[in-house]
Structures are given as C-alpha cells and as structure tokens.
C-alpha cells in the first residue's frame, strides 16, 4: 500500500504523521524552511506562493499558539486564511466531521489544517478526499488525540539542527508525560528517522506507554540516569486536563522528582539546549530559572515553527 501522505510521484500530499515519513522528505522540509527564517529583514513580509489559495484552519480542539503560527505561516505565503472554531459551531448541532469537510470543499478549500481530539481524524479526512477524487486538496495534521503533532516534531528537529548542526552524534532526552503526548510520539519518530543514536525517555512508569522501548528509545527511571551527558533536553507539558485517575500524587510531588531545575540540568552536557513545546507549567515540569535561562531555546522554537509550517504548506501547495 502506498504511504497515504505521499503522491504517486513520491511528493508530500498530506502531512499526517512523522511515523513512516521518509528521511529525504523530512530533510527537504527542514531545508525548505531555512530561507523562510530570513523573512524579517524584508519590507514586505510576504511571498506569493499560495496566492489565491484558501487555507481552512479547522480546530476541533482549542489551541492558540499552533493555530496562530499556522495562520501567520499561511498569510506570509499570501494565502487566504479562514479560521473555524468548530468546537463551538456545527458539530455542536450534530454535523459529522466529513459533512463539515464536504461543505468547506464546496467553498473551494485548497488546504485543511486540522486539530482534533480524536487520533486519526486528519487521516480520515485525507482518505475521504482521496476516495472522492479530490486529491488536489491537502490536509495538515495540527495535532490529533494522542497520535501525532508532526509540525511540532519538525520544528523541534529544525531547532536541534540549528543549534547542533548534525543528528548522528547526539543524545536526546524526552522528559515527562510521554503517555498522553502526541508531541513525544512525533519527536521520537523524527529523531530515530534522522539517525539520532540514543533517544531516552524519562518519567514515571505511570506516564509511559506500555513497552515504550519498542519505539526505539531507552527508558530511564530517574532524572540522574536520563540527563547524564545529553545534548538536548526536550521537556513535555504535564497534561493536567487529560489526567484522569491517580497517575500522579500532586503537581508539587511531580516537580520535586521530575521537574527540570538548574541542578538537574547540570548533569547534561554544558552546552545542552532545553526545549519545550509550550504552554509551560512553570514550577511543575520546569523551573523558571531554567525556562528563562541561557540554555533554553523555547522562544526560538516558536519562531522556527512559523518557517517550518511555511515550508510544509509551500511543498503541499506546489502540486
């Protein structure tokens, strides 16, 4: 079976997940993003690539940062952007996902940027477009359930490459709530595809997927073991709103054991960078002194995110 993300010619057709996306495509996205980071020096911060195209931001789940950066990216490519906060509209009246999509297609949509609380929703839309002969309409997954958040994974790879240049000599630690994190899944898929020799996951067993080692990572039960000599520390947000049941005693307890403090960061290499996908819970997974410290690259991640999303959309829009 053909990779549903690629066209017959092997070009990017939809961006649904980084799992199974060829290394060449990931590298092409990162390479394409590089010139987009230099937009700031222009008088006119716009490129004409998506002129006349309509991009629909279809957010079934709330998000400010991701939706805003997708909107900025599409607008810098001269697309028309339509934001739909679907969680407060038609679905409440009982319309199905695919009916919503069909209606927007009737409004001449060229691209859907989809966030959904159910894993697989963007995939379902892509398949529906395929089955109904509308391959010219593209889908970008902006986060689905616990499954994937591919543009976050890509912007993280862009950030790592920006600061560390290569992937083949790195040790990377992902810290926190891996179980509920679509970000972690996308990061792990991208890091292993790009040839990072050692990816560690650190956190309580209750917040790890069962058999997490099968994802190609090494589980570390303590921060001391996991952070030793790493080049990159990728913090995850403690997903309070998804936590049901007694997985954790309290946020304070979590911070004491798993929170990133300057003292624990000292175990990593002196030039290690600290990343966080946001929004941060200061004093829960990360200490303010680290979040605002000189090893943190959390705000550059946001800026690179716009360039990476421009790269994805310009590659999709080109065929």
């Amino acid at each position: 079976m053909r990779n549903p993300q690629l066209s017959k010619n092997g070009e990017l057709q939809h961006l649904l997940t980084l799992d199974g996306l060829p290394r060449s495509i990931i590298t092409q996205i990162l390479d394409t993003a590089a010139p987009f980071t230099e937009m700031a020096e222009r008088e006119v911060k716009k490129l004409p690539l998506l002129r006349g195209k309509s991009v629909f931001n279809l957010f079934f789940e709330n998000s400010t940062r991701t939706r805003t950066t997708f909107e900025i990216a599409a607008k810098r490519l001269s697309a028309d952007v339509i934001n739909l906060n679907v969680s407060t509209s038609s679905t409440k009246k009982g319309e199905t996902l695919l009916d919503t999509v069909d209606n927007l297609c009737a409004m001449q949509a060229d691209m859907f940027v989809v966030r959904h609380e159910s894993s697989g929703a963007p995939h379902l839309i892509a398949q529906h477009l395929q089955n109904t002969g509308r391959e010219h309409i593209h889908v970008v997954n902006a986060g689905d359930g616990r499954h994937a958040h591919p543009t976050q994974g890509l912007l993280d790879m862009y950030t790592i490459r920006h600061y560390k240049k290569e992937f083949h000599n790195l040790t990377v630690a992902i810290v926190g709530d891996v179980l509920h994190s679509r970000v972690a899944r996308s990061q792990i898929a991208a890091l292993t595809t790009l040839g990072v020799p050692e990816v560690r996951v650190i956190g309580p067993r209750t917040l790890m997927p069962t058999e997490v080692e099968k994802m190609g990572v090494r589980y570390c039960a303590t921060m001391e073991e996991g952070l030793k000599d790493v080049d990159v520390v990728m913090m995850l947000r403690l997903q309070n709103e998804r936590m049901n049941g007694a997985l954790l005693p309290s946020p304070q307890e979590f911070f004491k054991v798993w929170g990133l403090t300057a003292e624990k960061l000292a175990l990593a290499k002196p030039d290690a960078i600290v990343m966080h996908p946001g929004p941060m819970n200061r004093g829960v997974e990360i200490d303010s002194a680290v979040a605002d410290g000189n090893q943190a690259v959390i705000l550059p991640q946001v800026t690179f995110g716009i360039a990476v999303r421009m790269a994805v959309m310009s590659m999709l829009g080109s065929h």
Binding site: Q28, T32, P35, E38, L47, M315, S318
Partner: peptide, 24 residues
Amino acid sequence: IDVSFYRDDYAAKGLHQQPRGSKI
C-alpha cells in the same frame, strides 16, 4: 536572489528541491 519562491511556474513544477534563500 533565489527566485524559487517567485517563479510563475511554481504551480506546475513545484518548489526547487533546495531553495537557498535571498540575501540583500
């Protein structure tokens, strides 16, 4: 100048594999 992002055949040919960006 790398004209990749301004070409009029973008819709037909797609993006250059490795755009190098412009420096002014």
